[in-house]
Design a protein around this nucleic acid. Sequence first.
DNA 1: CATTTCACCTGGTGGC
DNA 2: TGCCACCAGGTGAAAT
Length: 282
Amino acid sequence: MPELPEVETVANGVDERIRGERIEGTWFSSHREPFKATPQAMSEALAGRRISRVYRVGKHIVMDLAPDAGRGIADGTAPVEAQWIVHLGMTGRLLVSAAAVPVPPHTHAVLELSSGRELRFVDARRFGRLDLRHLAAGEGFAGPGHEPLTIGAEEFAQLFRGRKTPIKAALLNQKLLHGVGNIYADESLFRAGIRPTRMAGRLTRAQLEALRVALQAVLRHAISLGGSSVSDYVDADGVAGFFQLEHRVYLRTGEPCTVCGTPITRTLVAGRGTHYCPHCQK
DNA sequence: CATTTCACCTGGTGGC
DNA sequence: TGCCACCAGGTGAAAT
């Protein structure tokens, strides 16, 4: 499901709903895939602590964990002792539900909260990951690349200098920019008029700047509409987003380009389905 | 090191 | 209705 706008929507929704709550208990499934840290380690780190803040870094959701009795829980300034890191993979969901609501199939983690509600991690394909940071052991979670929403023109252009890979593959590389995925790579390249197969290192400075502006605009617009719901994605309340209605090329193979009417083409770039207008994108 | 390919999973859809 | 191929928002390991 989830690229930057969807992860941002989920993280903000979870933060609004459960910030300040105490984690009373935990439950984890017996599948091994979603767990980078062991369920036992996560249980020990989570149970008895308070959730002081939930936010997005790249495509990761970070939950700051503070001591139960600490000050500054409500405004997120409490001392952070550990962080729970959630990556939604392709089909992951993070849901805040009343305990009485039936637990959905493919639920892999449940945090029981002081309000009586539960935070549930649900993931059919199990490409998602759950992990843990102990801040006493080092830095907080930073993520692998630059933040797409705030990166400046100079830094952005620098990322692609000399790269002999298609620009779309570079956009998907999380060590360069973290948070861009298949939908927003295709949509930003369309809005910038750049063909996804163009070699990244051969783009002009003006083209790269057009791409940066288009990418930031498309991500902000998508966040404002609660993200794109293609099949699985929903927010923390289980509600779908609306940005899929604004897609100009993604999954619109054969449909007319909204600008020139030429049928949208689908090809493979970096092993991913890639959609573009052969007339508007050079 | 840079880049490409493929495996990891389940479920939905569309053709026959 | 059933079966099968193909497709899907994600990485990360292995090969080149």
